[in-house]
Structures are given as structure tokens and as C-alpha cells.
């Protein structure tokens, strides 16, 4: 009897594993198609469609993508703003969140509302542009990626709620031992709030990594644009060149489809390897601030 249950359990586990493996394969399949499509030529792709093993191999799409000289600077800019931006954002956000979670601070609700207000209303594109370009003079400046995004109201609220779950008695006992607020934050609160910080950090890192709008709006110098905007630029320009070629009486043979795939493969690089290691924090992130204790 026992053996039967044991066998049933095992069978169930095996079926689950097989199903999950199949599901993983199904998820992986489009990506494999993208890679194989990027290594063929335009004619073969159009004639045969997307196949795992195209009949003709070609690297012409990669040659086209690599001829974009800003690929290196795009990577550098994106990595820089992701690392520096995440560190700066975490520092400032945690300081602000801590201040707002300390009940002693009388104006905390007013400040919190001030932050919350920006989640509901924004000045719009032109006002933002004027502010950044005319008054902050951040056009063609790498700081424009980081400064306006230093504190995300949503992340700040999340972290504040997380701090609020830390027992007040910890801070009180530290104060009795002579610690000031800065020491309490750095030595006691932040180490306890590590899961929250990692989650928020991940959110920040992703938003910095995916930044393209500010590059589009505020950067005229091509060596200061981010990787994501560069991808958009390459693809949009290839599409446009193709459309224009058809409407201006010019014969241009641009490998539209294969170059799209090659661009994807070239730029997806580091982040795709990072995801499997970080995904558990995404799950945790969903519960940050939502569960007591």
C-alpha cells in the first residue's frame, strides 16, 4: 500500500517535471527561432519562414548591426547608469523612506503626500523638457538618466512600508545605546531590510537598464544614448530606410527581418543571463510591504 502511494507520488512528480520541462521548451523555442533566423540571409528567411535549421547560413545581419559604431558606447552608458543609478537611487530612496517611517517626524505625512501627488499628476512632456533642459541644463549630460529618476515614488512607498514592519523597539534600544538616526538606518534598519532593498534595487536596475525615453528626449550626442534606444533607433531606421527606399525611387536592399533578430541577440546579452539568478527576488518583491512580520 505504502509502496503504491510512493509510486503514485513519484509518477506525479515525474509528470509535473515533464510538463514543466515541455513548458520551458515552449518558452525557449521562440528564442531559438530568433537566434537561427539571425544567422540566415533575408531571402532564405522570407522564402522558408522561421526554421530552427535554415538551409543557408549567413552573418550579413550581424555585419549590418555591428557597423553601428555606437554599440560599445551604448553598452557602456547603459551599464554605467544601471550601476551608478541603482546605487544612488537605493541610497536616497532608503534615506527618504526611513525618514518617513519614523513616527517622530511630524511633517512626514505632508511629505508623503507631496511624493504621492507626483504619482497621480505630472507636468507633461513639454514642462518636463523645459525643466530638464532650460533650468537644470541636463541636456546631453549623463546625469539626466539618473537625477530625475533618483526616487521612484512607488519604490519609496514600498520601502517605507517595509521599514514600518521593523519593530520600533530595535531603533529605541539603539537610541538608548547612543545611536543617532543615521547610525540606526545604516547599522540596524538597512541590514534587516536587505530583502526589501534587493527587490527595490532590482526594480531600479531594470528601469535604468530599459531606459530609452530620456535618451530620445534629452540626448542629441550619439555617444550618450542608451543601449535600448540604440536598438530602437537601429530597427526604426532600418524599417524606415526600407519604406523610404520603396517610395523615393532608390534601390536599397536592407535585410529588415534578419537584422531585427540579430539586434535582439546582440543586445539581450547580459540581462538574459542575469534573470534566472534574480527571479526569486521578483517573487519576493511582490510581497514586499504587503506582509507583516
Amino acid at each position: 500500500m505504502k509502496r503504491k502511494i510512493y509510486f503514485g507520488d513519484r509518477l506525479f512528480t515525474i509528470i509535473c517535471h515533464v510538463l514543466l520541462a515541455l513548458f520551458a521548451l515552449i518558452c525557449l523555442f521562440p528564442f531559438l527561432l530568433v537566434i537561427s533566423a539571425s544567422f540566415t540571409d533575408e531571402y532564405t528567411l522570407l522564402w522558408e519562414g522561421y526554421k530552427l535549421f535554415p538551409s543557408k547560413l549567413s552573418t550579413s545581419a550581424y555585419q549590418l548591426v555591428m557597423q553601428t559604431s555606437q554599440l560599445g558606447s551604448g553598452y557602456l552608458v547603459t551599464i554605467f547608469i544601471t550601476v551608478a543609478g541603482t546605487a544612488a537611487s537605493l541610497l536616497v530612496t532608503s534615506m527618504m523612506s526611513y525618514a518617513l517611517s519614523v513616527k517622530k517626524l511630524k511633517i512626514r505625512n505632508k511629505v508623503a503626500f507631496f511624493v504621492y501627488f507626483t504619482m497621480l499628476f505630472s507636468g507633461g512632456m513639454v514642462a518636463n523638457y523645459l525643466m530638464v533642459v532650460k533650468y537644470l541644463h541636463l541636456k546631453d549630460n549623463l546625469l539626466v538618466y539618473i537625477l530625475p529618476a533618483l526616487v521612484s515614488p512607488w519604490n519609496m512607498m514600498l520601502l517605507r512600508n517595509f521599514f514600518a514592519t521593523i519593530p520600533e523597539s530595535l531603533a529605541e534600544s539603539a537610541k538608548i545605546d547612543g545611536a543617532n538616526d543615521m547610525t540606526i538606518l545604516m547599522k540596524i534598519v538597512l541590514p534587516i531590510a536587505k530583502p526589501g532593498l534587493v527587490t527595490i534595487g532590482l526594480f531600479y536596475a531594470l528601469s535604468y537598464w530599459n531606459e530609452w525615453f530620456k535618451a530620445m528626449m534629452y540626448m542629441d550626442k550619439e555617444n550618450l544614448i542608451t543601449l535600448q534606444y540604440l536598438i530602437m533607433k537601429i530597427l526604426r531606421n532600418i524599417n524606415f530606410a526600407n519604406t523610404v527606399a520603396g517610395s523615393v525611387g532608390v534601390s536599397v536592399n536592407v535585410p529588415t527581418y534578419t537584422s531585427r533578430m540579430a539586434t535582439l541577440v546582440v543586445t539581450i546579452g547580459p540581462i538574459v543571463f542575469l534573470y534566472p539568478f534574480l527571479q526569486k527576488y521578483f517573487v519576493k518583491g511582490l510581497t514586499v510591504g504587503g506582509v507583516k512580520g
Binding site: L46, G246, S247, V250, V252, N253
Partner: peptide, 29 residues
């Protein structure tokens, strides 16, 4: 136009500006 240029379509509707592009692509393919 992609179908037409590789011979998977027999005809394609466009304007006169597109003629050079498809003439050269057809001959290439």
C-alpha cells in the same frame, strides 16, 4: 512586397517610386 520580391506572389500594388527597388530586388533573387 517581400512576398513579391522572392517570387511568392505574382503581383503587387504600389506606386511608381517603388519600381527601382523591386526591379533590383527581383533581379537579385
Amino acid at each position: 512586397g517581400a512576398l513579391f520580391q522572392i517570387g511568392k506572389a505574382g503581383a503587387y500594388i504600389d506606386t511608381i517610386d517603388a519600381v527601382p527597388k523591386y526591379n533590383s530586388l527581383l533581379r537579385n533573387n
